[in-house]
Amino acid sequence: MRFMGAGGRRRQRVVAAVVALVVLLLAGGVAVLMWQGAPGASPPVSPSRSGPASATGSATASATEIPASASPAPASPPASMPATAVPPAPPVPPAPPASDLPAPAPVPPAAPFPAALAGRDLEAIPGAGPAVALTFDAGANSAGLPSILQSLAAAGVRGTFFLTGSWAAANPGGVAAIVAGGHRVGNHSMTHPAFTGLSDAVIADQIAAAEQAIRAAGADPRPLFRFPFGGRDARTIATVNSLGYLPVRWSVDTLGWKGASGGVTAQLVADRVLAALRPGEIVLMHIGSNPDDGTTLDADALPQVISRIRQAGYGFTTLDALLG
């Protein structure tokens, strides 16, 4: 038997260590190749430096630990979101430029009035001969309008109706009925204020607002105008003229607006008209009822008024006779 010395034993240990290392490396390579070739296989888990994984840690897999064949579970929406998504609202198209908008319909010109009548609030129709103009103011209610229109139609007479803008706006059907009957319409201001206490600018606003309301209801009041309460002076007449309107007053006020409670009767209304009868007479009557007793004396007296005027040899005209 041969005995090795100390150096020989060291070499033997080194060789054994190298052989063991090679064996370990070969074994590791084979294991890696087998894992890569197996579908769905998980790589070996390296031990944690801090010791074994906790229960929570072992239940939570990292992204690299999810099998490639598994589908991830859909995420639940937050509680504040609806289950079905609402599609966004379609965009609002931009407004067309002003140049592309249709032009407003032109306002037809008003019938001009003779320059010789400027500066006057007419109380009769010049040169009318034996003819009477029946005029009706509308600013309160329309209680007497159906009867008035019926009486005018039955007698074949046309009248002139001075409307406030507020009345026209509240009674578009009444305006339509007046126009359908072939009657003339005039401007009586928007809200029936006393004009002598108004500035020129406020007068212009009153007349323009009334014109707009009356035109919106289907009639054109131009160029006839009647002052509320009949109050006027040289300044207000000139202002009205500058706005293209001709002021028209009256020859006789029937006083039917005072009502039975004011001591007036239908007979008295007719008597006043006949007592003032003259060529070109302008008669002032009212559509509305008396606010205290509800009487409509002008409407009640109208058939008798028409009959007695004709018996006196007179006919009828509208205020368009002022315009030539």
Rank of each mutant, 00 (worst) to 15 (best):
F3N: 13
G5E: 14
Q12I: 10
A16H: 01
A17D: 03
V22Q: 02
L26Q: 04
G28K: 02
A31Y: 00
M34F: 02
Q36R: 14
G40Q: 08
V45S: 11
S46R: 11
P47E: 12
P52R: 13
A55V: 13
A55R: 14
A55D: 15
S62G: 15
P67E: 08
S69Y: 00
P74Y: 00
A75Y: 00
A85T: 10
P87F: 00
P91H: 02
S99I: 06
D100S: 14
P108K: 01
P108E: 00
A110H: 01
P114A: 10
P114G: 06
I125D: 05
P130S: 09
V132D: 11
A133N: 06
F136S: 10
N141V: 08
S147L: 15
I148Y: 03
L149V: 11
V157G: 07
T160M: 13
T160G: 09
L163H: 06
L163E: 14
A168T: 15
A169D: 15
A169K: 15
A170E: 12
P172Y: 04
G173V: 06
V175N: 09
I178K: 13
G181H: 05
G181W: 01
R184N: 02
H188E: 11
S189L: 07
T191R: 09
T196M: 01
G197V: 04
A201M: 08
V202Q: 15
I203S: 04
I203Y: 00
A204N: 05
Q206M: 10
I207W: 01
I207D: 06
I207N: 04
E211M: 08
Q212H: 08
A213V: 14
A216R: 14
G218L: 10
R222K: 05
P223A: 03
F229Y: 08
D233Q: 02
V240L: 04
S242H: 01
L246R: 03
L246S: 03
P247E: 05
P247H: 02
S251A: 12
V252N: 09
T254S: 15
T254I: 13
S261P: 02
G262I: 06
Q267S: 15
R272I: 08
G280N: 05
I282H: 06
G294A: 04
L302K: 12
Q304H: 03
Q311V: 04
Q311N: 06
Y314N: 08
G324Y: 00
G324V: 07
